[in-house]
Computed example of a mutant assay.
Amino acid sequence: MIVTGLAGWVVSRYLAAFQLGYINHVWDPFFGFAEGTKQVLNSNMSHMWPISDGGLGAISYTFEFLMGYMGSPARWRTMPWMVAFFGILVIPLGLTHIVLVMSQPMIVHHWCLMCLLAAGIMLPMIPLEVDEVVAMGQHMAEAKRRRDRGGSLWKIFWLGGSAEGCTKDERSPELVTLPQQPWSVFKASIWGMTFPWTLIASAFSGIALMFCPSFFGINIQAPAADVGHVGGALIVTVAVVCMGEVVRLGRYLNVPLGIAVAVLPWLQSGSVQSYSVTCTVIGLAVALLAIPCGVKLERYGLWDRFVR
């Protein structure tokens, strides 16, 4: 979380520097600066905020980076308020990034490579954080049941609860041991996030779908192109977020998304048969890939019944 927060801050700060006039060029070897990135960063949508949207992203990533350091690994019990605020900062912001990415071809009709990178950095932060929020919620409910701090959720939220019923974490390596055992520390940092081949295939299918309109020569302003751009972005979002085991159930959202992608190109103007057939094949494949649950390695107490 700390590393991804820093990476997101670097990218957002770079975009903000252009929007605020400190630099006059943004690197974009894929879509081009004048043809893509400049159009997005100077669009009316980018200027609808009181401040630069890149600057707003940099501020958000700054808080995420700093909040990643606060508290111990047991802060879900000792600092529930911190986990709640961190979850609010990470999860809604991650989804907001995806909305902004989808708006590029729909509203601005251009792409921005660095904007896509910022969204790509934010997306995995959601499954990495959501299990801590689930742990915090379960602890507060259990502490209230035990009448910790008089059974007041308000006090438990701000002051934490007792460790009664908890077991000491013996398997997680300390962060300070990163130089000596980097692989062990890295693996521990992504516990709770697994990578079933079905979700990986769905994510790559969504990415392919986003590029299909350009590959088949569909005008970016045509409604048929929006099916590939928006549908692909949503499929990728669902697939990556649901790599978090506690939200694995959300993969079923890709079933209606896949069916919509399979059907809508045939009903939209500006489509061609080869594009519609490709969307149908990808959409039906994504819907089928959403059915298996995939591997589950961790235990989540009362939440286990929702991991299926």
Rank of each mutant, 00 (worst) to 15 (best):
T78N: 11
N219V: 06
A143I: 01
L20G: 10
P92E: 01
A163K: 15
L93D: 00
P223A: 05
H109V: 00
W158R: 10
P29I: 07
G250C: 06
V134W: 04
E298L: 07
M140A: 13
A262P: 09
G36V: 09
I207N: 03
A135V: 02
I291Y: 03
S72A: 13
R145Q: 09
L20E: 13
E298P: 02
T96M: 12
F306E: 00
S269G: 15
C212L: 13
T237Q: 08
A74S: 12
L20T: 15
I282R: 05
A34L: 09
Q180G: 12
L264F: 08
W303I: 07
T177E: 01
F65C: 08
W81Y: 06
L123E: 03
P29C: 07
S162Y: 04
T62G: 15
W111Y: 13
T167A: 14
M140T: 12
D148W: 01
G5Q: 05
I282K: 05
S103Y: 04
W154H: 07
S184T: 12
F85S: 09
C212E: 01
A203W: 00
V281M: 05
M122G: 11
F211A: 14
D169R: 05
N254Q: 09
Q181M: 07
S172K: 15
L20V: 12
P124E: 01
M67P: 06
C115R: 06
G206C: 06
G71R: 11
E142P: 02
A74Q: 10
G231D: 02
G151S: 06
F216S: 09
P80D: 02
W197L: 09
Q221S: 15
S189K: 13
I2H: 10
T167G: 13
H110K: 15
L267M: 09
G8V: 05
M122L: 04
C212Y: 11
L41A: 11
I59S: 10
H109L: 00
L116F: 05
F215W: 10
V236F: 03
Y69G: 09
V281I: 15
K38P: 07
I259R: 10
G137C: 14
G165N: 09
T237R: 06
P80A: 01
P223G: 08
S274P: 11
A17G: 11
V26H: 03
P105R: 13
L116S: 12
V99S: 08
S72I: 05
F31Q: 04
M140L: 13
A143R: 10
L6K: 04
L15T: 05
L297N: 12
A260R: 07
G258M: 03
L56G: 15
P127N: 10
G8W: 01
Y14F: 08
L289N: 08
C166P: 01
A233P: 06
I91A: 08
A34E: 14
N44E: 02
D226T: 15
A16R: 13
H229S: 13
G5V: 02
L267S: 06
T62Q: 03
L289T: 07
G21F: 05
D304A: 14
A119G: 15
R77C: 02
G232L: 04
L249I: 14
P50N: 11
N44I: 00
P223M: 03
V238G: 10
P124Q: 04
V101Y: 07
F306H: 08
H110L: 00
G55C: 07
E129Y: 04
P29D: 05
A290S: 15
